[in-house]
Design a protein around this nucleic acid. Structure first.
Lengths: 219, 219
DNA sequence: AATATTATTTAGACAAATCTAAATAAATAA
DNA sequence: TTATTTATTTAGATTTGTCTAAATAATATT
């Protein structure tokens, strides 16, 4: 199956939005891809034709088994390139996403597998997301919640779900990265903001918006 | 200047065909790009508009200074990726061209420069072609002639000008790669074929066609 | 349940990059 | 120099991926 870049991007975003088995709506996908709902409808027809998604008018989209397979390949390439950029080229955490968005579209299994080997077959990427292996299998992510939901006091950052440059740069500035341990000092119910403290840093208050995108597990 | 992949490919091929200062013809460019002359004409208008080429109807194409600069960036990326694939991922000589054709279109100066550094700032690629530096400067290739023109008897392979998989695989099978030393045993005037011998291999006869694409210098 | 709102799809248009077929210019041969 | 061949360009069509505006379906509200 030969996919265009546009098709790959749609498949990848459907995969991303389809947590569990929920259907993905036209609007959500358009928002995720920074495009228009009408364009998504067009693409949905094409991807249905190619049997990569299940789609009925007005009923939303889910990946077919083949679509999921394709998505996992793309995700694999994306996350391996992120590892390469961080581990080998010394890019920082927040810079690699956009570059990986481009590199992931070089569709060569041989290249992908050689790259993985070269990197020591890593199983998580620099954001803490698991990397599918050549067959699409990936380690089940360890249980984690978003920072605003966490009930433990001492936590470790395991992933960041919003990969926008703005958020990642913000976290970087605050000394927060994967594996960073932090302590929750207070919850402010008024605006759901949270006061946290990272070792050797002054305590900071972060908005609910930000907290939602920081995944943590108790430490 | 933001170039599309199609535009980059045209610029690169014009650069390749424009040896010295000769103009590049519509037909030659169409052949090189495996497209049609009419398509080249269309693209020429666009590239002229963007001031990357000099072009007058029926008078052929040359790169403008900005066009040459763009071409050198693309060539730099291409050759660095080839180094990466061969040196780091253990790809063989003849496999890397097609992959580099894709990777070269990731236009990030930071990535390119980091990659170069990671590779130890190489100055020639696995085919023996010089790699432009970040400013577009590259080592003047050492004097070389094609194998069919060479007058010395003992030669070393410095480059291969035709990067087709077929030729590279052929050379690989015959044990000929960059740096291989060979000896010319005979010229056959009848069909301009050449008998050559590589150390520890039986002598072989190669056609003029092949010989033209093997660049050598006396050793 | 009827109405209003929101989500989705359709219809028709557009830009990029390509093509074929026809027209025209340039080069070559008679 | 005229005729023929070759090279190039133009005109108009096609495909892919996108868009806007209008129409329709689904959902929410009164």
């Amino acid at each position: 199956m030969n996919l265009s870049i546009a098709e790959e991007n749609h498949i990848k975003s459907i995969y991303k939005l389809q947590e569990g088995d929920s259907v993905v709506t036209t609007n959500a996908l358009a928002y995720e891809l920074d495009t228009k709902p009408a364009s998504v409808t067009d693409m949905a027809k094409k991807l249905k034709e190619k049997k990569l998604i299940e789609y009925e008018k007005y009923k939303g989209i889910t990946l077919s088994p083949e679509g999921r397979k394709a998505a996992l390949q793309i995700v694999r390439r994306h996350r391996l390139w992120e590892c390469f950029l961080v581990d080998k080229l010394a890019f920082s955490w927040e810079e690699v996403h956009e570059l990986a968005e481009e590199l992931e579209h070089v569709r060569s299994e041989k290249l992908t597998n050689r790259l993985s080997e070269f990197l020591g077959n890593p199983v998580i990427d620099p954001h803490g997301d698991p990397i599918p292996d050549a067959h699409g299998k990936m380690a089940k992510p360890r249980p984690q919640t978003s920072l605003d939901q966490a009930n433990a006091r001492r936590l470790v950052v395991t992933a960041v779900t919003d990969q926008s440059t703005a958020l990642l740069a913000f976290l970087n500035a605050k000394g927060i990265k994967l594996g960073t341990q932090l302590e929750i000092m207070a919850h402010y119910e008024y605006d759901n903001s949270i006061e946290i403290k990272v070792k050797q840093q002054p305590a900071i208050t972060i908005s609910e918006q930000v907290a939602k995108n920081i995944m943590v597990r108790p430490v």
